[in-house]
Computed example of a mutant assay.
Amino acid sequence: MPVSTDVIGTELPPLTMTIDPGRVRFFAKAIGETLPDGIDPAKIPVPPTFLFAIELDQPDPFAWLTALGIDLALILHGSQRFIYHSTAAAGDTLVARPRIVDVYSKKNGALEFIVKQTSVTRADGTPVADLISTLVVRHPETAQ
């Protein structure tokens, strides 16, 4: 079932996360990034792609897709872009405000693209980053 372009502009519920230093260390280690010696554990800089985890840190991070009637088995992660405004650090409280900014199809509807932009700010409203992700919904019944 195609996703209606009427969802463009839909704001999803905001998410708030206080960045835990241990979690930042674990993430940095997982991606092979080394942290400077002697840094205050409460102020570890957040690796740039860590911000992607904010939206995944909820009980059902894909509920918005199922609410649109999308079968999660047909989803592919198409792309992820980051536009940085400032560096976040452990201890910062960040607020993510996602919204759907585009829906379009290709290959006569066999592939549908949903573009979501998430503005990440500190609790005081200071911009940190904009995350732009594109999800691809396959419609195998439409493929030719």
Rank of each mutant, 00 (worst) to 15 (best):
R97K: 13
G32C: 00
A53C: 04
A30P: 10
T126E: 14
A123E: 15
L12W: 01
S79N: 01
W64D: 03
F82L: 13
L74N: 11
K29D: 01
S4M: 06
D92T: 07
L76W: 04
V137N: 01
D57K: 08
R99P: 04
M17D: 13
T87D: 01
D71C: 08
P98G: 09
K29H: 01
I39V: 14
R99A: 00
P47R: 05
F50N: 01
E33I: 01
P140W: 00
F62C: 11
K116C: 14
G109E: 04
T118E: 05
P98F: 08
P14R: 01
S105G: 05
L15T: 14
V137S: 00
E141A: 13
R81L: 04
V7T: 15
S119L: 12
G38K: 11
I100E: 01
P127Y: 10
T49I: 13
A123D: 15
R97C: 08
V101Y: 04
A110C: 06
D60G: 07
P41A: 13
D40G: 02
G78Y: 12
I44V: 10
L56Y: 11
A143V: 05
V103E: 04
M1C: 04
G38F: 09
A42F: 10
P98C: 09
N108D: 13
E55M: 07
K29P: 00
T93F: 03
K107R: 06
L111I: 07
A67Y: 02
L65E: 15
A88G: 03
T126R: 08
T5G: 12
A123F: 06
L51E: 06
Q144F: 09
P13N: 14
G78S: 09
L65P: 14
V101I: 11
P48D: 12
T126P: 12
L56I: 04
I31N: 01
L131E: 09
T93Q: 06
V136E: 00
A42L: 12
I54K: 00
L65T: 08
T49M: 14
A89I: 02
P47Y: 04
I19Y: 12
A89Q: 06
I100Q: 03
V103W: 03
A28Y: 01
I114E: 13
